[in-house]
Write a protein that binds this DNA or RNA. Structure first.
Length: 137
DNA sequence: GCCAACGTTGGC
DNA sequence: GCCAACGTTGGC
């Protein structure tokens, strides 16, 4: 099983929206590196939901329920989307500023390449973040 | 195929 | 609202 972090601006698509829908379509990714990460996802992989711009914090965990298929929102080009389901809401959201301050998380891509919207997370990072969120790893 | 100019993302 | 970092576009 692999671990990921996926970003969304909450006024576009938020954690609460995903929870309300129970199953969400992660579309709109228009970056090739992010696309490669989407295509590498397998059913059962875990992902953090990160609110960019507003909040700037990790708010919950998700699982991948459908692997990459053509993004229906793309007008041109070959883009992909996956389906996800929420697993657990963070008891305490973990803000970017705190992530930066935690030594074992300072190498997260979120810290060093904040613009990549779909990024891999190591098993160690997954565990450390889950502990801080107060959710099962 | 290089690189300058421009646009976008996203933290501050 | 500003600006740095990164991607993309387009002229050569």
């Amino acid at each position: 099983m692999k671990y990921w972090l996926m970003k969304s601006e909450p006024d576009v698509y938020s954690w609460s929206k995903l929870v309300a829908e129970k199953r969400g379509k992660w579309d709109g990714v228009r970056n090739h590196t992010a696309k490669l990460n989407l295509k590498a996802m397998r059913v059962g992989d875990r992902a953090f939901f990160y609110h960019s711009n507003i909040g700037k914090e990790i708010v919950g965990t998700m699982t991948v329920v459908r692997e990459a298929y053509p993004d229906t929102s793309a007008e041109k080009g070959e883009w992909f989307m996956v389906d996800v389901e929420p697993l657990e809401a963070a008891k305490t959201a973990l803000p970017l500023a705190e992530i930066r301050a935690i030594p074992e998380l300072k190498d997260m891509m979120l810290v060093n390449n904040s613009r990549l919207s779909v990024q891999p997370v190591t098993a160690a990072e997954w565990k450390a973040v889950c502990r801080r969120l107060g959710v099962a790893a």
